[in-house]
Amino acid sequence: MTDPNHNAMTSDEMLVAYLDGELDADTRRRVEGLIGSDEAVADRLHFLAASNLPFKNAFDPLLDKAPAEKLQSMLAGISPPEPVRPPVNGWNRRGFLAAAIGFIAVGVAVDRTFLGLQSGLHGDQDGSDWRAVVAQYMSLYTRDTLGTGPVDAALQSAQLRDVGSQLGLALTPDRVQLPGASLKRAQMLAYDGRALGQITYLDAAQAPLALCIVQSSKGAKAADAERRHGMNVVYWSSDTHAFMLIGHESPDAIKAMSDRIRQSLAI
């Protein structure tokens, strides 16, 4: 009790640190001495020790509650960050701006570009927002992103089945096969809290190509074409889903492939 630091040494902070084994040997001995000599300190320690609860056991079940598969596919869907991409191939935001300016220069209607930018800023008003995001993603894909090794047909079928079931569509390798392109993989991404299915291919020139699907109740719309991030896009909707096919092939080739998809999915 003659210890000038008595109050500091017997504070709750110090007693809890003692319980947690966080004190060095010297301090620990001093605190132990005070516990032995001062009943009030011993009582307080006893009181605080009642909070030695099985915290780990209590929180471990939460790990099983985590949506592990969803998180893994989310992670898999994150493209390599922009700074990692070589500037020659990668389309970063500056590249996007340059492209936007380029489009104006080659005669893309200014009002359309303006609308496109606006919808990016003000939310998904005309359904084009998700296509902008997909296009930005796809602009980061290279042949290597999709892998050049042999494909596992059983795995692809399973991936398609899984993506299809989440979107409410029956997807099989046969139904999504595209002439001249090789199917690489199907995975779930998310856009604005909605499930987004992405089926990727390498086209005849070994460039990335993707069919992306979201659930949409905005009503059926005939196919239309646009250009985003230097790629050609054909997009359309059914009563239940919105689709886009995006790639580096010519507008006509992309259009022909989208016709094939619409036919085989009967949409």
Binding site: N7, L15, L48
Partner: peptide, 25 residues
């Protein structure tokens, strides 16, 4: 340390309903 001490005092108080929270100081 002070956050843990405050949390522990609260948890101890509800873990041992018979005990009264006192002060050692």
């Amino acid at each position: 340390m002070s956050r843990l001490a405050a949390a522990r005092a609260k948890l101890a108080a509800s873990a041992g309903p018979g005990r009264q929270e006192g002060s050692a100081q």
